[in-house]
């Protein structure tokens, strides 16, 4: 079979997360891989419009997968206009996801900026499901403002099993905001990682990951224990089109999740 041949999928449910972000519950053809891991992605698209890499925001649940998409360009704006019952095309799963086996048995620190919470959501789900396999689990979550927070109706369930810290760049709604205001790096002191035992998964804009990773290192964490998920332009997802290349790595195949040690200091990157 052609590795670029997409499968048909049907939008079973669409949930508006923020003004420009929606979560799609997608039913895929039975032939689609059963082996998905958190942090992997699909190439999602529509014929005539193109394809874009989109992370799994949930893995198989009731025969469906989840994608959380922000409308920013050709493909994502087109998806934004689709309705429940509409068809789209996707192919995958691609890439290396979060190293769950490395995290097991250790404290886990999850740091998400903006839409970065989407690729961490399957991690959170896995933690909730097998809570005993992990030590202390904390989630630091940053957004531009309260209106940009994702998955807000799930926080309560999360809080029962992991610690959740929220921050916004600025509070804009005028409603009481019982959490932090300021950059996400400001939250790092709230968790005080047990430096030897902790493993950190960080995802968000590259500049945010830069400062979070530096912050973690300053607090004694080793670069080998920090993992980041990179975003690059992607056309194929299968290490052939070259678009996602980053200093010799194919982000689509060698990543998108990398050990921080592997990608820090590379040219054309910010980490």
């Amino acid at each position: 079979m052609h590795p670029l041949k997409p499968a048909k999928a049907v939008l079973k449910n669409i949930r508006q997360e923020t003004a420009d972000v929606k979560t799609y519950t997608v039913q895929v053809d039975g032939a689609f891989s059963r082996e998905l891991s958190p942090g992997q992605f699909n190439m999602v698209g529509y014929p005539g419009v193109g394809e874009a890499p989109i992370s799994f925001s949930s893995l198989w649940e009731d025969g469906c997968i989840g994608h959380t998409v922000r409308s920013v360009g050709a493909v994502t704006a087109f998806i934004d206009k689709l309705a429940e019952g509409d068809e789209l095309l996707l192919r995958g799963p691609y890439g290396k996801g979060w190293p769950m086996d490395i995290a097991k048995g250790r404290d886990l620190l999850l740091v998400a900026g903006g839409l970065g919470l989407a690729p961490l959501r399957p991690v959170i789900r896995e933690v909730l499901q097998s809570r005993d396999s992990f030590g202390t689990v904390s989630l630091l979550c940053g957004a531009r403002n309260e209106k940009n927070l994702l998955f807000t109706d799930e926080y309560e369930a999360w809080r029962k099993k992991i610690s959740l810290f929220l921050t916004v760049d600025e509070a804009v709604t005028g409603e009481p905001w019982g959490h932090s205001v300021g950059l996400i790096t400001g939250l790092l002191d709230r968790v005080k990682p047990d430096t030897a035992g902790t493993c950190a998964f960080v995802v968000g804009p590259e500049i945010m990951m830069r400062f979070v990773c530096r912050g973690l290192m300053l607090r004694g964490m080793q670069p080998a224990d920090i993992f980041v998920s990179l975003e690059r332009r992607m056309k194929c997802g299968v290490a052939q089109c070259g678009h996602c290349q980053h200093a010799g790595f194919f982000v689509c195949r060698d990543g998108p999740v990398f050990p921080y040690a592997q990608v820090t200091g590379l040219m054309d990157g910010m980490l």
């Binding site: 014929p47 005539g48 193109g50 394809e51 056309k235 194929c236 052939q240 089109c241 070259g242």
Partner: peptide, 21 residues
Amino acid sequence: CFCHDVVDELSMDMKTVRRYR
């Protein structure tokens, strides 16, 4: 150099798409 783009070309009657690299 192996880099390529993947391009969709819609027919004017909106009935078919040619996906090429």
